[in-house]
Amino acid sequence: MTSFGWPEFLFLLRSTGWTLLLTVIAFTLGGVAGGGIAIMRLSRNPVLRWIAMLYILVIQSIPVLMVLFMSYYGLTLFGIELPPTVAASASLAVYVAAYLAEIWRGCIQAVPKQQWEASASLALTRFEQYRYVILPQAIRISLPPTVGFLVQLVKNTSIVSVVGFTDLARAGQLINQAVFKPFQVFTVVAALYFVICFPLSRLSRYLEGRLNARRSH
C-alpha cells in the first residue's frame, strides 16, 4: 500500500488546475449564453421571453448531475463522441447559462426604468440603450452575485467525473482508493477547494458592501 506523500499531493495540485480550467471555460461559455438568455428573457418578443423563461425554470429545477448526464448521453445518442474536457465544459455551461441568466436578468431590471425612458427619448436604439446606458450600470450591480455564483460553480465542478473528467474531487477519490487515508486525502482536497472558494466568497461580500455604500451615498 502506498502512502499519501508528495507525488499524490502534486497530483491533487494538478487536478486543481483542471478544476480551475474547467470552471473558467464553463463560466465563459455559460456566461455568453446566459447573457443572451437574460436579454431574451427581457425581450419585447413574447416567444423569446417564453423560451428563456422555460429554459431557466427547467434547468434550475433539475440537479446539475442530470444536466451533465442529459447533455452527455444526449450528444452520444446523436453519435457525437466528445472528449471529457469538452463534454464537461459544455454540459456545465448549460447549467451556468440558466443561473447567470436569472442573476443578470435581476441586475438589468434593477436599473431604474427612467434610464430606459431617458435614453429612448435621446433616440437610442434598443441595442444602443443596452450598450451605452443599461449594461454598464447592470454590470456594476451584477458583480457581487456573479462572483458569488462562481463559488457555486467551482463546487459543482466536483461532480464532472461522471462524464469521465478527472478533476480535483475525482483525483482525491482515486488517491484514497490507493492509499486509503480518507481523512488526510479529503482534508487536503477540501482545503484546496476552500483556498479557491473562500477568497471568492469574501470578494463577493466586499463588492456587495461597496455597492451598498455607493447606493446609500
Binding site: 427612467q114 434610464q115 425612458e117 431617458a118 435614453s119 427619448s121 433616440a123 451605452y132 446606458v133
Partner: peptide, 14 residues
C-alpha cells in the same frame, strides 16, 4: 425623437 427633446422631473442623467 431626434427632433424632440424631453426633460424629466427626475433628471435621469446616466
Amino acid at each position: 425623437r431626434k427632433d424632440v427633446g424631453m426633460v424629466f422631473q427626475s433628471y435621469n442623467l446616466f
